[in-house]
């Protein structure tokens, strides 16, 4: 059951990467940062799977995943924004966040081998904020990456709390340990279904983008 959820998540991720790169390279329509984000997600997922089979601590990669998610989604939304103020805000917020997080890692390198709560909170918050700003912009404009943004916000809410609880689950007995991760795998699948749906809505049709 667990394996099925996890591998099904990978499966959808691979499909999304394929579809979006098809749209990007063949039709030059999909956003480059979005494609990068999906490709990096795939690489990190496989890296974590690999490290897991080598019985190594794969949380380094997970922390890296959060950073990468914030930066790439931030740049993705930045490319969608029209206002200069919003574009600047994204850059400044990303710069500050990266500065703080990296200096914390330098100060205490052991942080990257467990669930780095501060990092998870900051990165998720910023991602949600970028997505909300995009929602705000979409209020009176045409819908662009609408379903994807719904997916991002939904996954950030659920996933972040689960990751914040991560350190706690290590101490639990095996029976309950994996419950939260099963839930996370499920959320991950839902999230990538939204991304898939976004592709169907925006890119699968021939002709002009909605």
């Amino acid at each position: 059951m667990d394996d099925f959820l996890i591998y099904f998540g990978y499966f959808i991720l691979v499909i999304n990467v394929g579809l979006y790169s098809y749209s990007f390279f063949r039709k030059e329509k999909a956003n480059v940062f979005l494609l990068l984000y999906l490709v990096f997600s795939l690489l990190v997922q496989f890296g974590m799977e690999f490290l897991y089979h080598l019985k190594m601590n794969n949380l380094v990669l997970m922390n890296f995943y959060f950073l990468e998610q914030m930066v790439l989604l931030g740049l993705f939304y930045r490319s969608l924004y029209q206002q200069v103020v919003q574009k600047k805000f994204v850059l400044i917020a990303l710069g500050l966040a990266l500065l703080i997080l990296i200096s914390r890692l330098v100060y205490d390198p052991s942080l990257q081998f467990k669930f780095n709560l501060f990092q998870i909170t900051i990165t998720s918050l910023l991602t949600v904020v970028f997505a909300l700003i995009h929602f705000y912009n979409m209020l009176t404009e045409n819908k662009q990456y609408y379903y994807l943004t719904i997916g991002v916000i939904g996954y950030m809410f659920g996933g972040t709390v689960l990751f914040l609880l991560g350190n706690l689950t290590i101490g639990l007995s095996d029976d309950f340990k994996y419950l939260s991760w099963r839930l996370n795998a499920f959320l991950f699948i839902v999230y990538h279904f939204f991304i898939l749906f976004e592709w169907v809505k925006s890119f699968s049709k021939k002709g002009v983008k909605v």
Partner: peptide
């Protein structure tokens, strides 16, 4: 550990709520 987690979680939710 538990207290930190609770703090971070509630902080996260509160800030998101404000936003």
């Amino acid at each position: 550990e538990i207290v930190t987690i609770i703090l971070y979680t509630s902080c996260f939710l509160m800030v998101v709520a404000v936003f």
